[in-house]
Deep mutational scan, measured.
Amino acid sequence: TEDEKKIQELLKRANGDVSKAEKLAQSQGNEELARRLREYANK
């Protein structure tokens, strides 16, 4: 999905570090994506 692409892109930029990727999403003002990242990471 589009969200998964965004999540994978963020994870790439954060070198696979979920908490960093989450902070990136939040810094972009994207709380929804940050929440999805957390769920994605907890799979």
Rank of each mutant, 00 (worst) to 15 (best):
3 D>F: 15
4 E>V: 12
39 E>R: 01
4 E>Y: 14
21 A>T: 00
22 E>C: 14
19 S>A: 12
41 A>T: 08
18 V>H: 06
21 A>S: 01
5 K>G: 09
11 L>R: 02
38 R>D: 04
14 A>D: 00
14 A>V: 09
15 N>S: 07
7 I>H: 01
17 D>W: 04
33 L>E: 02
34 A>F: 02
6 K>H: 09
40 Y>W: 11
35 R>P: 01
3 D>M: 15
28 Q>P: 02
30 N>R: 06
34 A>E: 02
31 E>P: 11
35 R>A: 11
43 K>S: 13
13 R>A: 15
39 E>H: 03
35 R>N: 06
18 V>G: 02
40 Y>S: 07
30 N>Y: 12
27 S>E: 15
35 R>C: 10
38 R>W: 03
41 A>W: 14
31 E>I: 11
26 Q>V: 13
2 E>G: 09
22 E>I: 15
9 E>A: 05
24 L>R: 03
16 G>L: 03
37 L>P: 00
22 E>Q: 07
32 E>Q: 07
24 L>E: 07
14 A>Q: 02
7 I>M: 11
10 L>V: 04
43 K>P: 08
19 S>T: 12
16 G>W: 12
17 D>R: 02
3 D>E: 14
9 E>V: 02
18 V>Q: 03
12 K>G: 09
33 L>T: 03
40 Y>T: 07
33 L>C: 05
28 Q>S: 10
14 A>H: 05
33 L>I: 06
26 Q>G: 05
15 N>Y: 07
17 D>K: 02
42 N>V: 08
21 A>K: 00
28 Q>Y: 08
27 S>T: 08
6 K>P: 04
20 K>W: 09
31 E>V: 09
3 D>I: 15
38 R>G: 04
3 D>S: 09
43 K>A: 14
38 R>L: 09
42 N>S: 13
22 E>G: 04
3 D>V: 14
2 E>V: 11
24 L>Y: 07
21 A>R: 01
27 S>H: 08
21 A>L: 05
10 L>T: 02
6 K>Q: 13
1 T>V: 12
37 L>N: 00
24 L>V: 05
17 D>P: 00
33 L>N: 01
10 L>I: 10
40 Y>P: 04
29 G>D: 04
27 S>L: 14
23 K>N: 07
23 K>Q: 13
43 K>R: 09
19 S>N: 12
22 E>P: 00
37 L>S: 00
23 K>F: 09
38 R>E: 05
2 E>N: 10
14 A>P: 00
27 S>F: 08
40 Y>K: 06
34 A>D: 00
26 Q>N: 06
